[in-house]
């Protein structure tokens, strides 16, 4: 490795790195806010999903049998849980990103090392959170393939 690239006192956030991080933080903030808003919308959709489904079923006016009603209610319940879970996960994941954006931005403005540390912790949490979600999704995917294979 080129010796010129090595600073005397280890790595530092120099002007170029600071400007790059500052730019990344702006985009990260936009993404985080959009993600939190979408998460909120999903939670609301989940809450209204069951109400909407029960109203739709009641419009049918006794045409359906009890079994159909129960199955539809179960489906609406599962739909509600999935929507709320997805919304909650989106809100939680993007809160980490917002933490990274806000704290890093403040750290760069005030040269606060502790704040920069919290900001990078936010980035780590964001990556770790989505990686764990990804692992869970892959496990569910594998489980569904195995279940389909057994059926």
């Amino acid at each position: 490795m080129d010796q010129e690239n090595q600073p005397l006192f280890g790595l530092s956030i120099d002007g170029q790195a600071a400007s790059t991080i500052s730019s990344s933080v702006q985009w990260a903030r936009i993404l985080a806010i959009c993600g939190i808003v979408f998460g909120g919308v999903f939670v609301l959709l989940g809450i209204f999903f069951k109400t909407f489904m029960s109203k739709t079923m009641s419009m049918g006016g006794g045409l359906e049998s009890d079994t159909v009603d129960k199955n539809a209610a179960l489906g609406a319940g599962i739909g509600m849980v999935i929507y709320i879970l997805m919304g909650a996960l989106a809100i939680l994941g993007n809160t980490f990103l917002l933490n990274y954006a806000n704290k890093t931005s403040r750290a760069l403005k005030t040269n606060d090392s502790a704040m920069l540390n919290s900001g990078f912790a936010g980035l780590r949490n964001y990556c770790a959170f989505w990686a764990v979600i990804m692992i869970l999704c892959l496990l569910l995917f594998l489980l569904s393939i195995v279940t389909m294979g057994l059926m």
Binding site: S12, I13, A114, A131
Partner: peptide, 26 residues
């Protein structure tokens, strides 16, 4: 908390960035 030469990447920052890089790679 302020470094004389601006912000530096200390051990704690290194740990966070290293872990973020590992999860990012995954």
């Amino acid at each position: 908390q302020q470094s004389i030469f601006g912000l530096s990447v200390d051990d704690s920052n290194r740990a966070h960035l290293s872990e973020a890089a590992k999860w990012g790679r995954f």
